[in-house]
Nucleic acid binder design. Structure first.
Lengths: 185, 185
DNA sequence: CTGCGTCTATCTATGGGTAGGGAGAGGGGG
DNA sequence: CCCCCTCTCCCTACCCATAGATAGACGCAG
């Protein structure tokens, strides 16, 4: 296993742990055990927990935006834009019962080290920005002003994050699909 | 200070800590320091962290439902029902920058001791039940079926929890009010 | 004198983080 | 071709702080 593979494996393992148990719910030792190395080796690749957390969040943000695709290839229907966003949350929930990484970090944001909180914030800023831009290309988006598009973007993201929490808390993944996305208005 | 006052103080202190930092983000020692006793005294009132967490969640649920009021005194307009729910989240956010306790626990639910997870689930079950019942009294609620009312109840709660996460993550409480509640449809 | 509530003192487990050693790959000079 | 040096990467072994939790003593009120 090359060093890049090792870093990758650590990042993925950490991401999964944070998404199921939260930032305060994982440790270097657990990661090391899961990966098959010693905790000192994890420190070799990521000097501090803060650095690891921030790297995980940054990677997650990049993957998330990559999965959404370029704005200029986004759907031209409002509902399809929303579904593209919402579908990301849905997939991770039904496939692995995981929260959105930054939804999890967002809940804990008041207790996070600065660098991790900053990456969490960046995730939402960029996700909102993508959605606003995608909405601006739709027929509805061209009829309304920027604040209206922002409201719908925020509302859609909030619905996804909230739906994840409800479905997991209630122990019923079907709940996720019973949450309706906000409609443009 | 009577023993009941002491228990009360511990419950309130623990609730505030969980709401800002999560279940894994507080300790008996921190509570003891904040309250002005030793951690062994906290254990006297709540034998384990699991018991304390569950008691905090149960108390929160009761207070939450009390604040909503009896279903037969709930508003008769859909929007007013939603606003009564949403307003609870809003108040705690703007007054003290706190999450909904069970929104926080809901994010961490996969890592919670059984009793705490069970109380978290009960919070959502009862909150959804209250909202469904309140919606059933509205004119809209009487035109649609139970699943439709449930969908709106779940969607409204999800919007509130999601809005809390977004507002806190983005460090901008105004975001909370930019999240639109789902409309009956 | 009993018992409740708090204390001191301590246990064991685990947390993040560090120091320093050693194995192995790779490259240069003899 | 071989030796040696160096650098990378992971290891062992540890540090200290903090976690939840317990035992048993103390003081005060009834």
């Amino acid at each position: 296993m090359t060093v890049q593979d090792m870093k990758e494996t650590i990042l993925r393992t950490a991401a999964t742990m944070i998404r199921s148990r939260g930032y305060n719910g994982f440790s270097f030792r657990e990661i090391a055990d899961a990966v098959g190395v010693k905790s000192a080796s994890v420190h070799y690749h990521f000097p501090t927990k803060e650095a690891l957390g921030a790297a995980v969040a940054r990677r997650y943000t990049e993957d998330f935006l990559t999965a959404l695709g370029p704005v200029d290839e986004a759907p031209l229907e409002v509902e399809a834009v929303q579904t593209r966003l919402h579908g990301q949350a849905r997939r991770s929930l039904v496939e692995k019962n995981l929260m959105c990484l930054c939804g999890m970090l967002g809940a804990e944001v008041a207790d996070l080290p600065d660098a991790v909180a900053a990456e969490t914030r960046r995730f939402f800023e960029r996700s909102v920005a993508w959605t606003e831009a995608a909405l601006a290309r739709t027929a509805w988006g061209q009829r309304v002003d920027a604040p209206a598009r922002r409201r719908l973007a925020l509302s859609t993201l909030a619905a996804s994050e909230g739906a994840l929490i409800l479905a997991r808390s209630l122990g019923d993944m079907a709940v996720f699909d019973q949450v309706d996305l906000p409609r443009p208005g």
